[in-house]
Simulated scan of single mutants.
Amino acid sequence: MTDFSNQAAEATERMRQLFPATPLQRNDHLSNVYDADIWLKREDLSPVRSYKLRGAFNAMGKQADKDVFVCASAGNHAQGVAYVCRHLQKKGVIFMPVTTPEQKIRKTRLFGGAWVQVQLVGDYFDDTLRASQAYCAEVGGHFLSPFDDPDVIEGQATVTYEMLEQLGRSPDVFVVPVGGGGLSSSARRLLSERAPETEIFYVEPSGGKSLAAAVQAGAPIALAQVDTFVDGAAVAKMGVNTFAALKGIDADHVLDIPEDRICTTILDMLNTEG
């Protein structure tokens, strides 16, 4: 295996200390609708119901000598960091916008227990981010980016690594959601080494096309406005490290989906699949 494949393999092995591999399941409903063989990697079955746990665990494990971990997040990254703080018995300070839904705040506190402190700061995420970084510098903590960090990207690669192992072959087509690019950049790096024949499509919400903007400009640029309905992918600016791995992709492979279609698809999957 090549370098990144080896890193992903080692990260995947370390991940088993925290939780078992999430299943890769053939979805009969979607396969029948689209006359294709469609498999879903069930990251909703991780302990925090998203893949963000992987990047947090990989990055924090490599910085185990740090006493305090700091992050800014309105949801999945916060919960992943909180879960790992409790597992590693490390103090975590998690900054969240004051507009964060109470359910997400409660889950973050639940996952972190006594090891995590939640700070509600700022009406907008940019304000929250600035406050978290200032605090991190003040206390000498380690800041955990939700996506733009090589160790986080390496951790997210374990999703694709597990998928290849579970499928037992290279998929014809790989469809990956895009926010800041942590998952998609890791997938591209790993698939380019292990399954270069696989065609990759990158999907982002129409109200947050940060990858499409970066591909067009040749570098990450900030969107003037972002629709926050798809909050896990509502990123105004793609990461520098993530775009370095995505630069040069075919613009025709970057797809955007309107928020109303995403909404109806969620309802369809809920009603059909439960």
Rank of each mutant, 00 (worst) to 15 (best):
G180H: 06
R16Y: 10
R194W: 10
V152N: 07
G61H: 07
F19V: 11
D3E: 14
F125G: 00
L40C: 08
E204L: 04
V118A: 00
L167C: 03
A134F: 06
E43A: 05
M163P: 00
L53I: 11
G218Y: 03
Y161K: 11
Q119R: 09
T2I: 13
S50Q: 06
R188K: 14
P146S: 03
V176I: 14
K91C: 00
R16W: 10
S46V: 04
M163N: 05
D231K: 00
N6H: 03
T228I: 10
D151F: 12
V230T: 15
L45G: 01
G55N: 02
A82R: 01
S31H: 10
R261W: 07
A78F: 01
N241E: 15
K107F: 04
G239V: 09
E154P: 01
N241P: 06
H77A: 10
G207L: 08
Q17W: 10
S73H: 06
M15C: 11
I262D: 07
W39N: 13
T100I: 06
A134P: 04
I94W: 10
V70D: 10
L223K: 02
K52Q: 00
G182W: 11
E102F: 07
M15P: 11
A9T: 12
F201L: 13
I153R: 08
L110V: 12
Q225P: 10
S185M: 13
Y51N: 01
V176E: 14
A72S: 11
V81Y: 04
D3P: 08
R49Y: 09
F95C: 02
V121H: 08
V159M: 11
E199H: 12
A222G: 03
G239Y: 08
I266P: 09
I200E: 04
